[in-house]
Design a protein around this nucleic acid. Structure first.
Length: 467
RNA sequence: GCUCCCAUCGUCUAGUGGCCUAGGACACCACCCUCUCAAGGUGGCGGCACGGGUUCGAAUCCCGUUGGGAGUGCCA
């Protein structure tokens, strides 16, 4: 099986995990799974400013959350690019010895000056034939050959680049360290990568990398450049102005299956008319050839809608378990959340939340010692002429009725009919007295679960407050 | 500026020359259901950027225009 495809995901550790990176990782993972190939994780940590062990843990953790488990047999790595610096330099030296690269003593400023003077952008090949030897401060540049470079891209087809539009790019810095372009290629060759699936922003690098593959004596891999994710302004998602951290969505209570499902529908769609689909189906159907060519807007609204769908697809037990972490950190939580109580609450709220972070504020009145009364809700509902009456009436009716959902509801219905009102109107003050809010889970279920004594107590408290 | 990429409802997409009077989803609107809010159901609004070709026939192929985007570092 030495010809099984080898995909790779090569993020640089930056302290947070970008949703765009998540999508790229997912694409690679789906492909590796379907083709019986391997998913190689390589941390591109060669820039000192992007080098911190916690960042790497964050990447592994984020991938695991998405279902890309580092313990899975198809998963290989993580490898660290910084560990292979020796190989990168050695490859560069081989290129120099073969005459495919040369030393140059121009500083970046000098290169820029020359470009400005000549009116042609980029490095002009000044040292191409000067026969310079290696020396501190000198950079090694690749000697770009004449002709054209044709990149065969699985998503976009053939893309041609005239080599004379590509400058002799740097391989080794003045301090002797390799730059990304080289390191990336050397590692890919070393790790026997057969498919490079990455974001479109790398497409302009590709001819350079392909030349490097050839110069190093290898046939280039299959390339695939997937469109970038953009914001509402159609700009590439960036940390500075957009919400791009996967961890943030996770902390908001977006489910992992939701994120996976949603990310996969950006630039691609499963067959048929449904787009809420399980990962297993994505693995079966995903093809690079079917990936769209244009950038996709990362729409948080739609993400939320997907999340609501996924929440509703869970069993009650699954949903309760998923809610638990959000309840444990809730403000009232000194003690533990009662599992039995939670199980009764779950069906009331599962259709009412789009993300797990909303759960706490939806059930807080069950756990708090008294209703967390919202001032606006109070003034809005308690000003009606029947507000006081309905509270008093309910206080006494609930004291003697049988404690069933139907009977509790009947108590309010009797009052409502006697006054010729609508249940929708009369329930409002009662709801605020019991739950503190005008919206929330079904009132009568809530009262039943809360219990007779506590319900009556809250009604009495409200009556007292009304004066 | 230069290089490259892209172009179907507001958004994400289906569509690969006739099945398209362009399908679905999100959002939005209306109605139904209903103890609030949701969820659910029904219906509605809304699109092939433009101009030329090619073809019996074009959203689909070609060219151009316009409009977006990405890259343009001794960052990755």
């Amino acid at each position: 099986m030495s010809d099984a495809p080898r995909y790779r995901f090569a993020p640089s550790p930056t302290g947070y995990f970008h949703v765009g990176g998540a999508r790229t990782a997912l694409y690679n993972w789906a492909l590796a799974l379907r083709t019986g190939g391997t998913f190689v994780l390589r941390i591109e940590d060669t820039d000192e400013s992007r080098n911190s062990p916690e960042w790497t843990d964050g990447i592994i953790d984020a991938l695991a959350w998405l279902g890309i488990d580092s313990g899975h047999p198809r998963f290989e790595g993580p490898y660290f690019q910084s560990h292979y610096a020796g190989a990168h330099v050695a490859a560069a030296m081989r290129l120099f010895e073969a005459g495919l690269a040369y030393w140059c003593d121009l500083t970046p400023e000098q290169v820029q000056e020359r470009a400005k003077a000549s009116g042609r952008p980029g490095y002009d090949g000044h040292s191409r034939d000067r026969g310079l030897e290696q020396a501190p401060g000198r950079v090694l540049r690749f000697r770009v050959p004449e002709g054209t470079t044709e990149v065969a891209d699985l998503v976009r087809g053939r893309v041609e680049f005239a080599n004379d539009t590509i400058e002799d790019f740097v391989l080794l810095r003045g301090n002797g360290t390799p730059i990304f372009l080289l390191a990336n290629v050397v590692d890919d060759i070393e790790m026997r990568i057969t498919h490079v699936v990455r974001a479109e922003e790398h497409l302009p690098n590709t001819p350079k990398q392909q030349m490097l593959w050839r110069a190093l004596g290898h046939a280039p891999p299959a390339w695939a450049h997937v469109p970038v994710l953009v914001n509402e302004q159609r700009k590439k998602l960036s940390k500075r102005r957009d919400k791009v951290a996967l961890e943030q969505y996770r902390a908001d209570g977006i489910l992992a299956p939701t994120m996976v499902n949603y990310l996969m529908t950006l630039g691609w769609a499963p067959g048929g008319d449904e787009e809420i689909v399980p990962w297993t189906r994505i693995v079966e159907e995903f093809r690079l050839e079917d990936v769209n060519h244009s950038p996709a807007f990362f729409d948080e609204k739609k993400l939320l809608a997907f999340n609501g769908d996924h929440i509703r697809m869970m069993t009650g037990a699954e949903f309760a378990a998923a809610c638990a972490p959000w309840l444990e950190s809730a403000p009232w939580s000194g003690g533990r959340i009662d599992a039995g109580l939670l199980a009764r609450l779950v069906p009331l709220i599962q259709t009412r939340v789009a993300r797990l972070s909303e759960v706490a504020s939806m059930v807080d009145f069950f756990f708090l010692p008294s209703a967390p009364v919202d001032d606006d809700a109070w003034t809005k509902t308690m000003s009606s002429e029947f507000a006081r009456d309905v509270l008093v009436e309910m206080e006494s009716a609930l004291g003697s009725c049988r404690w069933t959902l139907e009977e509790i509801k009947a108590c309010l219905e009797r009052f409502t009919e006697a006054r010729g009102l609508k249940l929708g109107k009369t329930q409002a003050p009662v709801r605020v007295a019991i739950t503190g809010r005008t919206v929330g889970p079904p009132l009568f279920d809530s009262i039943e679960i809360l219990g007779r004594d506590e319900s009556i107590r809250r009604l009495a408290t409200a009556v007292a407050r009304l004066g």
